[in-house]
Simulated assay, not measured.
Amino acid sequence: MSSPRPPRPSGWVLGHVAGAPVVLAPSWLLAAVVLTLVFAPSVQTWTGGGGALPYVVALVFVVLLFASVLVHELAHGLVAKARGQQPHAFVLTLWGGHTTFGGAAATPGTSALVAVVGPVANLVLAGGFMLVADHAVPDGTLLQTVLWAGAVANGFVGLFNLVPGLPLDGGRILEAAVWAATRDRHRGSVVAGWTGRVVAVGVVLVVLVRPWLAGVTPDLVSVAWAALIGAFLWSGASAAVRAGRTGRVVDSLTLQSIGRPAVVVGAQASLAQARETAAAAHTADVVVLAPDGRPAAYVDTEAAARVPADLAGTTTVLAVSTPLPVGAVVDGSLTGDALLRALSAASAHGPVVAAVVDGRVVALVRTRDVVAALRG
């Protein structure tokens, strides 16, 4: 499974491929132990042996399985890089693995191609294991059993990942198809996310309902695995739905939608003059300019409201103002994601940012207003 998540995860770096680290997350160790314990009884049944052998064989199979997952993720990353999308990290985790990128795919075709090569890689591995098991090793041997298990595991991983619902690769393909048809990437995310929610519920229902229909009570291990996988899929699908909705909001961001119009006064102005200027412009926000024309402060409306009218003429505007740090300025002509990135950088200096268009302060943008807009 792949997703555009820039932060580099923690873990052990095994090497680098396509300019990105291959990271073994600490949670992988837990997965390796649990899967080894789960598979060991089956290996003991196959081999008829006891002692440590079933656990050694089970561990070999688990390592083989995770190697197949790594091939899956490397396929994502290598094709992505060939299409101009730089992979950020290849990560093996408790849930298998994922590939992170420094940015999203530029076109629906690239997104679909990057998504489909992972499952295809697993299906190719499944075919390879089958061929070797059939033609290169003696029948009935332990090695043949392990190879057949690898073929089945890769076949399952490849086919399951093609199910059309995020966060699975098939969901990414569905997202790309909707994006191409509607020219709306975010609608694709929402549709594929909702489909992923259906898949998550379906996985749980299949594990629970099928045994009951056959008159058998589902075993506890199967129920636990179904619940974990269903929860993982539901979480990823829900995140995709939220990301799609948020992305649509981000695309529509403008200064008019998140900023509050402001007027400017000099540092020597009185509060009465600031009030008159703001009233004439039908706004409440006032920015105080430094002698060099830089926005230096903004009037705290609550503090200004506490000053009686008879004292406003003798109260300097700076007495009721909050400083604007250097850098707390944004280009008000920006829109969408460019505006959001600029606001993110400027808001590092403070929760209020002055918006400037053609060298003139036109509005104030507050972090809380931006957050409220992103939440819909």
Rank of each mutant, 00 (worst) to 15 (best):
S2P: 01
P6F: 08
R8T: 15
G15H: 04
P21D: 08
V34E: 04
P41K: 02
Q44R: 15
A52I: 14
F61L: 14
V69W: 06
H72A: 05
H76W: 06
L78T: 13
H88E: 15
L94A: 13
G109D: 03
V116L: 10
V117R: 10
A121S: 15
A121T: 09
N122K: 02
L123N: 09
L123D: 07
V124I: 14
G127A: 11
F129V: 10
H135E: 09
T145Y: 12
N154F: 00
G155S: 08
F156W: 09
N161C: 03
L162C: 05
V163T: 14
V163Y: 02
R172F: 00
E175K: 15
R183F: 02
R183G: 12
R185V: 09
R187A: 14
G193I: 05
W194K: 13
G196P: 09
R197Q: 12
R197K: 11
V198D: 00
V204G: 04
R210N: 09
D219S: 09
A227D: 03
L233G: 02
V250I: 15
L255G: 07
R260P: 00
R260N: 12
A262C: 08
V263D: 05
V264K: 11
L271Q: 08
Q273N: 01
A281M: 02
A284E: 14
A284H: 13
G293Y: 08
D310K: 00
T314D: 11
T315R: 01
A319R: 13
A319D: 12
V320Y: 03
T322S: 14
P323W: 06
D331C: 09
T335Y: 00
A345L: 13
A348W: 03
A348P: 00
V352K: 03
V353S: 00
G359F: 07
R360D: 08
A363N: 06
L364C: 11
L364A: 10
A372Q: 12
